[in-house]
Computed example of a mutant assay.
Amino acid sequence: MPPNASTRDYLLTRRSVGIAFLKEPGPNASELEQLLTIGTRVPDHGKINPWRVVVIEGDARAEVGARLAEIHARRNPAADEASLEIERQRFLPAPLTLVVISSPKEHPKVPEFEQLLSAGNVAFNLVHGAHALGFAASWVTRWFAFDEEAAAMLSVAPGERIVGIVHVGTPTTTIGDRPRPALDEVVSYWGRK
């Protein structure tokens, strides 16, 4: 296979763009279908699809935020209006949010950990897909990914868990690179001293 310079250059420069810098427009229906197709094209030993994606767009973004604020208020009776407003805005301004859920399946040859990694690959492929389609994305988790009631409100079933919340939109800024680890700090060669 010949080298692909544009893919290499993209991978060497990819940066997440925070939700505050993701605005309309988001993907249209055709682009969303392409994005989801890219996102679910991941290693999946056993072909068992141990993941699901929940799409949050349009008015649903504000509705989800309102419900998060309600849960947050119950969990934190002393919460002030400013903190509740933060929860109401969680899925805004990004025009699209994709909740990636690990949905493990019983399988004699595919351990749950491997299935979890496959789900993580879905989240990262969604980030790559967003960029490939001319958008930007940010993969995050927040308190509600780990809160049972909030996760259930986001369509997580018993035995499942959120592995990523991917916000997608049109970037309003260019994010500079961040420091990356020196390879000799994170890479070793087995058998070398």
Rank of each mutant, 00 (worst) to 15 (best):
Y10A: 07
K105E: 13
P93E: 04
A78K: 11
T172E: 11
G134P: 05
N4K: 04
A94N: 15
N125Q: 14
H167I: 07
A150E: 03
L84N: 04
R90F: 00
D9L: 09
V186W: 01
V187F: 10
I165T: 02
E24M: 06
R61A: 00
H131K: 12
L11W: 05
K105G: 04
L183I: 12
E70G: 07
L154P: 07
V122C: 07
R74C: 12
F144K: 01
L11S: 09
E24S: 15
I71T: 13
A60C: 10
Q115L: 14
R161C: 01
I175S: 00
K47Y: 05
D44P: 12
R180D: 00
V166D: 09
T172S: 14
D184Y: 01
R61D: 00
A60S: 12
P3I: 09
Y10S: 01
W143D: 04
M153Q: 03
L32M: 07
H128D: 13
G46K: 09
F135Q: 13
A152Y: 02
G164N: 06
D9S: 10
K47D: 06
T174K: 11
E148R: 15
K109L: 10
A136F: 08
F146V: 05
T40M: 14
V168F: 07
R75C: 05
V55W: 05
S103D: 15
